[in-house]
Amino acid sequence: MTQDPGTPMTKSGYFADLHNWLINEDFTSTKQARLHKAYVAWLSLLANPLAFAGFAVIIALIVIAALAPALTVYDPYSQDLTMALKAPSASHWFGTDEFGRDVYTRVVYGARTTLYISILVTVIVAPIGFVIGASAGYLGGWIDVVLMRITDIFLSFPSLVLALAFSAALGPGIENAVIAIALTIWPPIARLARAETLTFRHADFVVAAELQGARMGRILLRHIVPLCAPSIIVRLTLNMSSIILTAAGLGFLGLGAQPPMAEWGAMAAAGRKYLLDAWWLTTIPGLAILVVSLAFNLFGDGLRDILDPRNA
């Protein structure tokens, strides 16, 4: 990455200066070094069209979720049985569902549900997985054995079966689905965190910090976290797609989001009853799931090349 990452475009004026400042390796400040790193990452993202496409879709998803009311004219919940199961048309781009609700509107609002679930799961799972994995790796001994045993137990369930069992037990509902999915997602994160921690466990800087009397929490937070972060972030991004698919699968089986909430999996499942007369009811939410989950995969793949080249 030391050479020019190959942007053939000629820059001019302010942007050229900025570009040169960012690309310059003779840092004059930590800030510049950080910005340099980010900029180089950005350039490599641009250089990878597939990853960039994924990134663009994710940004679009966030924008759509944020601006949902502005992007739609109908109410996602208001029913009109006389308008039930109308095919896509100029007034209803993606047709209407069995209650006469506009499918386009519900797909747009469904973006919120999808983001909500995937972000919430990630926020729950990242610290838990890290703490369990890192402390197992750092402390070793019987704590390691016990923690890894628990992790293995969770890993030996097929993840959908586990999520299914948990959400069946907790009852339907989106929060419960989040918990259930989180329970299936943390073990691989913990594994990864442990492996990463082990590689740094006896590194000089860790030993030095220990000798200076730093506590475990501080060492984990100050030294291990920054080193593990890239691979964990990559893993979490790639996980997004399986979170979305699992959530959709739960919605499909009647767990997860409850009516009238717009959730793509549940919409696809409800539409299956009208499959033969209203193909749009399952096809469109299904495509939405596909596109978003593909985007996270593409982006995650690209991110790995950038952040975590060791595991690429």
């Binding site: 919940y77 208001s78 029913q79 049985l81 069995e98 209650f99 009516p259 009238p260 009853k273």
Partner: peptide, 13 residues
Amino acid sequence: TPEYEVAQSLQAN
């Protein structure tokens, strides 16, 4: 079906 549809209709009204 159709119990759930009936329920969702009531919910909306």
